[in-house]
């Protein structure tokens, strides 16, 4: 039988469970900082047109009279080479990072989990074939692969996402495959088989629920990693087309104006770090709560 998780829907119990989760999560100060950072960034990104001082600077906007202004009360992060407000563009730049993470993981994780489940559960040639392909894809640096795909298909946001998703499933396939191989010998799987459960039932209702915590933690860590890769891609000039702001592109442009106009590279870099550190700390907290060892 399936281990009963949270089946008791009594509201009091539920609240107690949540309180326990929060207690475990809040044991680590860094996890709280991470959660705050991530929530803040998501909120700012969603509300970008309303909370940024110069939303029109995220699009086509040129005002050379205001170019290269150092940080001030009017422009917290200064202005860039054509006079756009860098604070505004940084907040809008997060949109690219978050969209990339959501789409890449939204495609890559379910695909990898499914293939890992099938490979681990059926074994035999299916397993060999899937895991061999996984090995091959993993044998290439993700960035180089993304570059190759972008090169062939042309570089825009859709292709960058496709390229990263085409690589990403491998990590989850490997993770789930490893877990399924040991889980499929558990007694409750045997029991389900004896009771005449079909393959699909065993895979999705018996085995998968036990893999979910590890997959969640891995996905949170992945979000940080995708953010890093996305920043790298846009740093090389791939991903979004100007004038749409992307943090990596802003850093690359700013690096050309070092050291005189240091703020152009420094603030977008710090923005990237805030998101990556935040996601990592959040993932650590999640790991504590779900008690996973990755």
């Amino acid at each position: 039988m399936r281990p009963v998780v949270g089946a008791d829907a009594a509201p009091g119990r539920q609240r107690l469970r949540l309180a326990k989760f929060w207690y475990r999560y809040s044991q680590n100060k860094a996890s709280i900082v991470g959660l705050v950072a991530v929530v803040l960034i998501i909120a700012l990104t969603v509300l970008a047109p309303y909370v940024t001082p110069y939303p029109e600077h995220a699009g086509v906007y040129v005002n050379f009279g205001e170019a290269f202004q150092p940080p001030s009360a009017a422009h917290w992060f200064g202005t860039d080479e054509v006079g756009r407000d860098i604070f505004t563009r940084t907040i809008f730049g997060y949109r690219f990072s978050l969209l990339l993470a959501v789409v890449v993981l939204g495609i890559g994780v379910p695909l990898g989990v499914l293939l890992g489940l099938v490979a681990g559960y059926y074994g035999g040639w299916v397993e060999s074939a899937i895991m061999k392909v996984t090995d091959i894809v993993l044998s290439l640096p993700a960035l180089a692969m993304a570059l190759a795909v972008s090169a062939v298909l042309g570089s825009d946001l859709g292709h960058s996402m496709l390229a990263l998703a085409a690589i990403w499933w491998t990590w989850h396939a490997r993770l789930v495959h490893g877990m399924v191989r040991s889980l499929k010998n558990e007694e409750y799987v045997e029991a389900a088989k004896v009771m005449g459960a079909g393959d699909a039932h065993i895979m999705f209702r018996e085995i998968l629920p036990n893999c979910i915590p590890a997959i969640l933690v891995k996905t949170a860590l992945d979000a940080a990693f995708v953010t890093e890769l996305g920043a790298g891609l846009s740093f090389l000039g791939l991903g979004v087309r100007p004038p749409t702001p992307a943090l990596g592109t802003m850093v690359a442009t700013g690096a050309g104006y070092l050291p005189a106009h240091w703020w152009m590279a420094v603030f977008p870099s710090l923005a990237i770090l805030l998101l990556i550190f935040g996601l990592n700390w959040f993932a650590d907290g999640l790991r504590d709560v779900l008690d996973v060892d990755l």
Binding site: A231, G232, F235, A255, L258, A265, S269, I272, I276
Partner: peptide
């Protein structure tokens, strides 16, 4: 581990 290499480079 988590800081992107190009940011380390610029720093």
């Amino acid at each position: 581990v988590v800081t992107p290499g190009f940011i380390v480079g610029i720093a």
